[in-house]
Every structure is written in C-alpha cells, then in structure tokens.
C-alpha cells in the first residue's frame, strides 16, 4: 500500500485520502460517567480514550498541597491483536509517569490541600496517536470536574513519511516507526509542555519541520475542544440559575 499518492492536480494524499496536514474527525464528550467528579471521552478518528477523575479526601494531615495519582491503561482489546499480558507492561508505567509529571505542574494543587485527585485513563481503541489523545482526554476531564489549571493543555501527534511531515498518524503509519512525535502545548503561554520523539534517525531540519506543524495542529485541536466545552456549558446554562 502506498503511503503517499499524488492526485491529478498534484496534491499529495495519504493512505485514507487525507491531506498531509489534515486531522481526522475529532469528537469530545464531557460528563460521560455520572459517578465521577469529572470525566471525558476524546475521539480522534477511531482512536478513543476516556479519562475519569475522582477527587477524594485524605484522612492524613498531609502537605499543604494536593496529590495527583494517575493510572494509565491500554486495554487489551484496543489494538488489532488481543494482548493477554498487560500488568507487566513497562510502556504503560512510563507513560503514566509522563502524564503525571506534566499535569502535576499545570494543576494548581495548592488549592486542594489534603486532597487526592485520582485520574484513570483508559485507551478503548488505539488507532494511532493514543498518547496525545490521552493528554487531551485528561485535560477535558479536569475541566469537566472543575479542577483549577494554569493553562489549557492540548496534545498532538506528528510524524514523517519519507521526508514529508504529516499530522495525526494512523496505526499503519505509526507501525512503520519512521517517526512518531508527540507534542503537548500550553495554549495561553504558547509554550511547549512535553516532547517525545520515537524515531529511526531523522535530520535536524526534519525535526524543525515537525515542531512547526505540530504547534499549528495543536491550535486546531484546541479549537475543537473549546467548542465542545462551550456547547456543554450552553446546554446546561439553566443550572447556573437554579440557586
């Protein structure tokens, strides 16, 4: 299967007919689970990641800031082949630490003394780019649960097909592992929060390309997320006048 093909009017298309910098369809849903403090489902194409937040109390007289616990889980039915052994997977442990380290510094934990915020992130379907989808789902869940954050966190995945920079890889494109680049961006400060590059040797010039296209696509994803949040707030606007 060709990775890239050229159309008659000389615009290059990818495997599923997308242009190089085109994102798949994004769907964000907030308040997906009733018993939790906050929850969100983030879908991009076929990749679905759901995040649940539970704000709990600690009995012990702790520090004067809250604690964030993250539990990241790639379900064994999420990939094409069913995976039986998940508990020993060191990849998931590594990624939980990544999520935790970023959000620990973005959430204003000083406002939640003696509390514990438990985040459960589940990848329901992994069709490429589940790492950035996880960051987005957590960000939405925190906003849904009313947890104060310094900034709006958005993430995106980019890659290289040959020498060409593309946005939002699907599973087949990711598998070749020419390059998978995850970037987490803070919208207000316009700064980068997290970078992860998984590749088989790329040139520095290609890397600069990747950075610039990722930052642009973060803006697009941020807009989608914001419209979803606004829609939810407007839908429930009457509840602001209940009291």
């Amino acid at each position: 299967m060709l990775e890239l093909r050229h159309d008659n009017d000389q615009s290059t298309l990818r495997m599923n007919g997308r242009k190089l910098l085109e994102l798949r369809d994004i769907k964000c849903q907030l308040d997906v689970m009733k018993n939790t403090s906050g929850s969100a489902l983030f879908e991009i194409g076929n990749t679905k990641v759901v995040a649940f937040l539970q704000a709990q109390t600690l009995g012990v007289n702790q520090l004067n800031r809250g604690i964030l616990n993250v539990n990241f889980f790639v379900t064994n039915f999420s990939a094409i082949e069913h995976r039986a052994d998940i508990k020993k997977d060191i990849k998931m442990k590594e990624f939980t630490r990544m999520i935790k380290s970023v959000f620990e510094q973005v959430i204003l934990l000083d406002l939640y003394p003696r509390s514990q915020l438990d985040l459960q992130v589940f990848v329901l379907e992994a069709d490429g780019g589940y790492r950035s989808a996880a960051f987005n789902a957590v960000s939405l869940a925190l906003m849904d649960g009313g947890i104060a954050m310094k900034d709006f966190v958005v993430a995106t995945t980019a890659g290289l097909l040959g020498n060409v920079g593309v946005i939002d890889l699907i599973y087949q494109e990711e598998k070749k592992q020419n390059c998978e680049f995850v970037l987490v961006h803070l919208q207000k400060a316009q700064k980068i929060a997290y970078v992860n590059l998984n590749c088989n040797k790329i040139r520095l010039s290609d890397f600069e390309k990747l950075m610039s296209i990722s930052v642009d696509s973060c803006d697009k994803i941020a807009n989608e997320m914001k419209t979803a949040i606004r829609a939810k707030l407007v839908k429930n606007i009457n509840s602001f006048y209940f009291k």
Partner: peptide
C-alpha cells in the same frame, strides 16, 4: 530520540 519529563514551558 527525544524525551521529556515535567512541564517544560
């Protein structure tokens, strides 16, 4: 390869 930890800003 590249990897980061914490919120770089």
């Amino acid at each position: 390869g590249m990897s980061s930890l914490g919120c770089l800003e």
